[in-house]
Every structure is written in C-alpha cells, then in structure tokens.
Design a protein around this nucleic acid. Structure first.
Lengths: 160, 160
DNA sequence: GGCGCGCTACTCGGATACGTCTTGTCCGAGTACGACTGG
DNA sequence: CCAGTCGTACTCGGACAAGACGTATCCGAGTAGCGCGCC
C-alpha cells in the first residue's frame, strides 16, 4: 500500500505547468525540483500517454497541459502514474477449499471485497474532488501569489 | 498502490474465527481456504504481533481472537498486515532546487501532501467503519446463516 | 531581397540494468497433553 | 488407586531464498528552428 514516489513529482509538475503558455522541457522541470532528469521524463511520458499533457518535440519543445487546470484532478494524475488497477484484488477465496461456495452463489462480490471497494471509492472521490487549479489556489493562499509567479517566470526564463 | 494479497487471507481468517471458542491452528485455516500453510502462518503471526489474535502453543494450540469481533475493524487488520506507514510520503520537493522555499515557510504540510492525507483519511475512516462482526452479519444476510455455521462446525471437527 | 533547402541541435520515447519489497518456504524453539512408573 | 515425571507430538516463531515491481539510467528516433545558398 505504498504509493509510487513519482506521483508527487507529477503533481508538482502539473501545478508548475499552470498558466505557462510555452511547452516546458523535462530537463527544466527536473532542474526546478532538483530531481533526476531521466526519471522525471519517464513520468512525464506516462502523463502524456494518459492525455493529461501533450508533448512537443523539437528545439522549442517540451510538455504542456492539454486542458484547463480546473479539469485535471489529482485522481487523474495518480491513475496516469500508478495505473488504473484497483488496489485490492479479490481472489475469490470463498470458492476454494473443502467448503467452497458454488459459483452461482458468488454472483455478487463477497463482503470483504465490498468493504475494500467502498473504502477505495471514498479514497478516489476525495482525490477526484481536488483539481490542479485548486492546488495552485491553495499554494497562493498559503505562501502568497509570488511563489507560483516566480516559478512561472523561472520556467519561461530557462526556456529562452 | 497495490494492497498485499495477505490482507484478504487475514480478513477471511478473522471472520472464520468468529464464535469459535477453541484455538484454531494455522494449518487448519490454510486447509479451509486452500492456501499455503507456511505463508498464512506468517500473516497470522503479524495479527498476533498486532494484538488482534492470541497464539496458543502446544498440542491443542492455535489462534483465537483476543476481543469481540465487533471491536476488530478491517482497518486494524490492514494495518497489522501492511504496516502503519502512510501510503504517500512527502519528500518536501518544494524545499529543493533553485527556488527552494525556506523551512519556516514549510511548517504546514504542502497542498499536495494535504490532498493525499485527506484521501487516505477518507479511506481509513471507511475501513474503520466495518468490523469483523459486520462482515459476518453480511455473509449471513447474503448466503444464509448456514455458511458460517458450517465453517465453525468444520473448524471444530478438524480440531478433534 | 526573397525563397527553398539542408543542417544542427534539441526534444521526446522506449529499451535496458539495479535495488528493494512482497511473496513463498523451511527448520528450530517452546509447550501442553498423554502415558508410564513408582509409592 | 493416585501423584509425579518423562517423552512425544504438535504448535508457533523467526530466519532464509526467489520472484516481481518500482527505481534509475542510457541511447536512439524524430522534429522544429536556423543558417546558408540559390534564384
């Protein structure tokens, strides 16, 4: 039940890409956060495959958000990095052993499975309720609007 | 974000141990569910370390619940197997790189961290709301009371 | 001076090693029951 | 017949390998901009 560390990087990158019109290379994002360039590139590719960011090749290329930050939820990013597989996989343990239940009695998910599914659903709903725009607003409210403004200025300055 | 498969085994074992007065050996539980005896024993040891079950050695030994099934939540079992570590670990990425925030500005958790914490909290609350007794009641309601009665009879019969 | 072409440098993308954690298994330590022996 | 003691068989407990996944890195494919040459 440990979440991949790349999720944190990906979310921070999406927040940094807010309100930046030009594509930002992965190397620039890596320098901004002082992390491995190659490894961050891997996660950005995952975001691109999921359709959250578009990749532009060539001299002035890089990554840019495909849609408004208000339309990108944290859940989208987590799924893009971690995959869409559910965290709990029911192996239908009740259909095994000497007291195995018949398959027609197992049309509905077992009680354990349903409890796990409900918890996971609550987790997803919570993540779905937070967008990248919300995060940017929160950072502005916490640390003042100069922080994100400085990030944007630094990104555009590094691009030139 | 994948949950250990041993959690499913542990939860089912706790449900099976409901209303069984005598200790049940790990080998019997393994035969009941048709799983690896050695590996299940490992998980039962984890439950014992967490204080959810007590282990009795010797000829008529085995595992038994330490408290009422209504006082054992699914979250207790998940923590016993998976550990208490949070699923998301914040590496304080905002304090790194050329635009690093000062430590005194980071007394509160960052926005990303808070969003993840809230989601995990929702997940935990959902799991905390379901007890082993609830699961047993649900099974009785779904498949009839004969299923769990049969399990208890089989466990006591295998003990003799 | 304007246009077309080739080059270069920069970007992403996937394929490739390494470390760590989960999974799976085994054997040794400990204990309660049962049988045996002596009073 | 009863009590103490020994032996045995059964239990848990932790230590020991194997596989899978996440982590980290590298090099090749592709493309957009830029400069040069030609008209």
């Amino acid at each position: 039940m440990r979440m991949s560390g790349g999720v944190e990087w990906a979310v921070h990158c999406c927040v940094a890409l807010t309100d930046v019109d030009r594509p930002v290379p992965a190397a620039t994002l890596a320098r901004l956060h002082d992390v491995s360039m190659s490894y961050l590139a891997k996660h950005m590719q995952a975001l691109a495959r999921a359709g959250l960011v578009r990749s532009v090749q060539g001299k002035a290329g890089g990554y840019a958000l495909t849609r408004s930050p208000g339309d990108i939820t944290v859940l989208d990013i987590v799924i893009a990095i971690e995959g869409a597989d559910p965290q709990f996989t029911c192996t239908e343990i009740r259909q095994r052993g000497p007291l195995a239940a018949s398959p027609e009695d197992c049309l509905r998910a077992c009680a354990v499975h349903r409890a796990m599914l409900a918890a996971e659903q609550a987790w997803r709903e919570s993540l779905r309720g937070v967008t990248v725009a919300d995060l940017a607003t929160t950072v502005d409210r916490d640390s003042g609007p100069d922080v994100l403004r400085g990030v944007r200025a630094w990104l555009t300055a590094s691009a030139s």
